[in-house]
Amino acid sequence: MRVAERIKHDGGTPAKAAAAPSLPPAVVRPRKRRGVNREGLEAGRRSTRTLLWILLAAAMVLYGFPFLYLLFTSFKTPIDTIAVPPTILPKEWTLENYTNALGRIGVLASFINSIQTAIISTVLSLVLAVPAAYGITRYKTLSGRIFIMAALVTRMVPPVAIGIPLASMMGTLGLSDTPIALSIAHTTISLPLSIWLMSSFFEAVPKDLEEAATVDGCSRLGALWRVVIPVVSGGIAVTAIFAFLASWNEFLFALLMTAIRSQTTPVVIANFQTQFGLDWGSMTALAAVYSIPVILLTLLLQRKIVAGMTLGAVKG
């Protein structure tokens, strides 16, 4: 075996190369170059990784800063919150804003309303989106394609344009100022997105799985329930989170459709800005508290979300 071939065969490790007797310098050179390349490659990888970490950290700061600023502001004294120029950290830490915000009449009720509305809206979205998306992806008909495109139309209309007619319709139905009315309104926002998301998840599930289940005696619905849905459970979690968030943070419909009984927290938060002044401290305190359930929910479902987002990534 020629030396060059032997080096190639041995994997080019320095130890094995050193064992070769009386190697001419010309032949050794490539070995040395390969060693340098590997170190260079390692260094390159390290610098790429460092760069990625820096970019990641920058992105985190970019996304996280507004929330951190909100959090810090919620612990500031009233005069600190309006400081010119603004400060990031409180000069003096206080819980006064939390006492004010949570002690305000109607705040607790608004939290319950927000939770109730978001849950109903999420359930409604999933109950409607899962079968719709399944039907569209499995039957692949022209009407299905038209339907999925048409579902997006509601997302193309400014919410304020449908908010006022929706509020009037709910009034006619005797549903004014109820969580169910607001949930239905919120479902108009989350349903199109849910159908599209679920469609992509169903697309990723091989038909063979269902066919195998059918061979084993499952009906079509049985296969959907016992085989397909467990496979796309990550996708359902992702869709549920999006639907929940869409309702949880929604403001305009809540403003137009709720009053005493079903007012949600985003409206209550907005009420801290009045024509006579802005209570920054209390507003940020309530906003910070309001974000806790969503953070917890996201953390609890984190693994499902990641699984859902990568579902279909290896489809081949």
């Binding site: 109607g106 607790l108 009720a109 608004s110 939290f111 319950i112 309303n113 939770i115 109730q116 849950i119 109903i120 359930v123 009034g171 005797g174 549903l175 004014s176 100022d177 109820t178 969580p179 169910i180 949930s183 709720t258 005493i260 009984r261 079903s262 007012q263």
Partner: peptide, 22 residues
């Protein structure tokens, strides 16, 4: 949670009590 929310919505109640129309 879902059951409670659905049950409350069935009675058309918000956290403030039964709804009024106008």
């Amino acid at each position: 949670g879902i059951c409670t929310a659905v049950a409350l919505s069935a009675t058309a109640c918000g956290a403030g009590g039964p709804a009024t129309t106008s």
